[in-house]
Nucleic acid binder design. Structure first.
Length: 491
RNA sequence: GGCGCUAUCGUCUAGGGGUUAGGACGUCAGAUUCUCAAUCUGAAAACCCGGGUUCGAUUCCCGGUAGCGCUACCA
């Protein structure tokens, strides 16, 4: 399906891609895909002081990682300065804008004074009625001028927002805002309108923090005698304290979640559900299904708290349902990133063994980081023993003897498979008069260093007989050597 | 302060003039089991307040309150 719908995502490179920005990008993308339209990427780098080129690269990477491919761009505002100046000049010639010689310092003073007197402040129009002669004189004095838009004295501007509905603002509440700074750089308002016009954007989908800006921009479209795009504002994403999500709430950038081992599909699914519910009761929704049912009119009007717990749950759902073939390369990346290369160095861990290991572990992984982290013992012999697990499962003095005996019998178990290893262990337990669970738990700690792991016999198969036997023996040694000096006390 | 917007379980939300107000995450309890995860069963948990309209409002209208946003020569 092809349509002439054109939307854009326009981040400014003053920070990494924020999850709020990511959701805006996602909704734009879903809307375009749903309607058969195009998404244009634009970089709003007109703030020379705060914009950093390397951040643009990072933003692009994050978008790609999320799978939100844009159709045109990126277009850089910093390369279109002439266009903005020309537009400001046009507006000036048409009497819809005027040069303003007030300095930021002067304005700041007036603003502060008004505030201290608890008077509402908006630009007082000092330069509004300047004559051409006044302007010549000021320019001759070397004064720099910004260009301000002349807001009509009366009337109201209204628009129908796809998500928020009817919005109305009285012109008396709007000030003559700056279009072009005195250094010749455009402000946000000028850049957005000029670009959205030139790029023939049909739908402006952006954060609700821009609702108040919209009437100003509509006024500009009207002054330019240009058609106004359709607007759709998205509720904001909040932290747990209901304050706008920021660094102090922890990770806010897409890149940070990537580094924490979150899958892009999970983050996308989670973000999609923050403010929008696809038809049906399912929470795990495939991207194709989202595209099919996406509807801006169904987007919520209220802000949403970013719930890390739910993201974690969703990530584990995606991790679990990922085909091993697709999970395997991701795990390998994590392992080598953690210096664990591709599993055991002795070559015992073949590709197939690695696959089985990952398959065994994937149902209990919360993030990709669990593989080099909590599951470390499955990939290297250099792992630590959890003191809590040791305390809980190795407290019986007979454990050392049992583990030694178990090692011996495992060495002789034929076949070394699920049924064989289990039979061996249960037989030993019965002979020694201990509950199988005691032996199983003690062995689990010996093999993984943890009190928590997959089923013991699955673990044994994945580790392989040699490794099982040696780890059981080492554990027995460790226990004997520490007897009487504190290991059993957990320190 | 001014202006704008919003308001259903702790969180994300469905719903809508008459419902036992539904689902999901989380929480708690139980089942299962070698631990954990998963799974299954069950439980606690919400319509911000006040007026109006109406036979009947959580739903529609108004007001209040609260929260958020904007109030820059940031975006």
């Amino acid at each position: 399906m092809v349509s002439d719908i054109r939307v854009r995502f326009a981040p400014s490179p003053t920070g990494y891609l924020h999850v709020g920005g990511a959701r805006t990008a996602l909704y734009n993308w879903l809307f375009a895909r749903h309607a058969g339209g195009l998404m244009i990427l634009r970089i709003e780098d007109t703030d020379v002081d705060r914009s950093k080129p390397e951040l643009t690269t990072a933003i692009l990477e994050s978008l790609e990682w999320l799978g939100l491919k844009w159709d045109e761009g990126p277009i850089y505002q910093s390369e279109r300065l002439d266009r903005y100046r020309a537009m400001a000049l046009n507006l000036e010639r048409a009497g819809r804008a005027y040069p303003c010689f007030c300095t930021p310092a002067e304005l700041q003073t007036k603003r502060a004074k008004a505030e201290s007197e608890r008077r509402p402040w908006k630009y007082d129009g000092t330069c509004r009625a300047l004559t051409e002669a006044d302007r010549e004189r000021l320019r001759a004095e070397g004064k720099l001028a910004a260009v301000r838009f002349r807001v009509p004295d009366s009337g109201v501007t209204t628009f129908e927002d796809i998500v928020f509905g009817h919005i109305e603002v009285d012109h008396r509440d709007l000030e003559d805002f700056v279009l072009l700074r005195s250094d010749g750089h455009p402000t946000y308002h000028l850049g957005v309108v000029a670009d959205d016009l030139d790029l023939r954007i049909t739908h402006v989908i952006r954060g609700a923090d821009h609702i108040s800006n919209t009437p100003k921009q509509i006024l500009m479209y009207q002054a330019l005698e240009a058609p106004t795009p359709i607007f759709a504002h998205l509720p904001l994403i909040l932290g747990p304290d209901k304050q706008r999500l920021s660094k102090r709430h922890g990770a806010t950038s897409v890149g940070a979640y990537r580094e924490q081992g979150v899958l892009p599909e999970a983050l996308v699914n989670f973000l999609a559900l923050l403010g929008w519910t696809p038809r049906g009761q399912k929470e795990i929704v495939a991207i194709e299904e989202m595209i099919r049912s996406f509807d801006l009119a169904a987007v919520s009007k209220s802000n949403a708290v970013f719930d890390l717990e739910k993201l974690a749950w969703m990530n584990s759902e995606y991790l679990r349902s990922l085909p091993v073939e697709r999970l395997l390369p991701l795990v390998k990346q994590e392992l080598s990133g953690a210096g664990l290369a591709m599993g055991f160095k002795d070559g015992e861990q073949t590709e197939e063994k690695l696959r089985q290991t990952v398959f065994l572990l994937q149902s209990r992984a919360r993030t990709l980081k669990d593989f080099p982290g909590a599951f470390r013992a499955f990939f290297t012999d250099d792992f630590a023993f959890d003191p809590e697990a040791v305390k809980k499962y190795w407290k019986d003095a007979a454990v050392a003897i049992l583990l030694d005996e178990l090692a011996g019998r495992m060495a002789a178990t034929e076949p070394f498979d699920l049924a064989g290893t289990e039979r061996t262990l249960r037989t030993l337990a019965e002979e020694k008069g201990v509950k199988a669970g005691v032996l199983i738990n003690a062995a689990r700690v010996a093999l993984t260093g943890q009190g928590v792991a997959p089923g013991l016999f699955d673990v044994m198969l994945v580790l392989g007989r040699n490794r099982v036997v040696s780890r059981l023996r080492q554990a027995a040694d460790r226990l004997r050597s520490s007897e009487g000096h504190g290991l059993s006390q957990g320190n």
